[in-house]
Design a protein around this nucleic acid. Structure first.
Lengths: 153, 153
DNA sequence: CTATTTTAGGACAAAAGACTCTCTAAAACC
DNA sequence: GGTTTTAGAGAGTCTTTTGTCCTAAAATAG
């Protein structure tokens, strides 16, 4: 798998938050039910995003989490780096330490091209873009049901 | 990580075998020492490749494994599919079941493009190509030492 | 037939990832 | 102050991946 499950959950949660008005905090419990991820596990993942400065959190009644920046300024790359770290974008495809321009493995050049393509995808996709696409084409973030589920839930 | 460790080990072993004359069997023990992978673990991985028809194996003295087809006819894709299976090339980037053209997630189109790039890299890289590149530019398959290590070892 | 070399196969151990549960701390409301 | 609602943090469990070890089976050589 390209991304860990934690990372995928973090992405789905971030997209969900991007559908919301950024002025109110969304309780993780409610969010976990809407996007169908275990409450406690999602809490742990979002703690990482909060620690990395992607989310604001607030305790107590009417508390929860929200995006710290506008959805247009957060990309998938930000979330992936916060959860899975940079390994995907730096490691050698054959797992060799120090593989690089000076000391490459046979796959190095081709892999560098592919990696750029992955990088490009992650950097060019803002949360805002994904929400716009989700809204206009009724895409989905859950096993069943379309995008309106997120907007209402 | 894009590929599992088992898969990466399988790739390195396959490239190593492609440097050899395909008429003789190479003992896994010797190979494991040259490419620096645990003997028993590598044995398990190569058993999968043998079971999938990519390798021939032979027991007893002067036994070992060898490529079943010419190195020009085996691609990285063959090895990846044999070990990691097709998930990388079929699964939704957000982990949603049944994500496809009819029922996509917001990331579906962009991910499809990236996935094609990965597919392209794996399918267009034959073992022969990698060995040629390795020989001509002294690339490496191990932590230390260049390609001649494989040719001699 | 016996000893040796090699793959095949299964049981087992260690580490990492995924997930659960419980308790604490902060904030709000009464 | 006491109760409720929420995130934070830690311990603990389950599963998958990674890796080790031991025995069996096949082939060869004497």
């Amino acid at each position: 798998m390209l991304l860990s499950k934690s990372c995928v959950y973090g992405l789905r949660a971030s997209i969900y938050l991007a559908t919301k008005n950024n002025s109110e905090y969304i309780p993780i419990k409610k969010m976990s039910e809407t996007i169908e991820i275990s409450h406690h596990f999602l809490t742990k993942i979002l703690q990482q995003l909060t620690a990395q400065g992607l989310l604001d959190s607030y305790k107590g009644p009417n508390g929860g989490v929200r995006l710290k920046k506008p959805a247009s300024e957060i990309t998938l790359m930000d979330v992936v780096l916060a959860i899975d770290g940079p390994d995907l974008l730096t490691e050698c495809a054959l797992g060799l330490p120090g593989c690089g321009h000076q000391n490459p493995c046979p796959l190095h050049d081709k892999w560098a091209t592919t990696r750029d393509s992955i990088k490009q995808m992650l950097e060019s996709s803002s949360l805002e873009y994904l929400v716009e696409r989700g809204k206009s084409e009724d895409l989905r973030l859950t096993n069943e049901g379309g995008f309106e589920k997120l907007l209402n839930g």
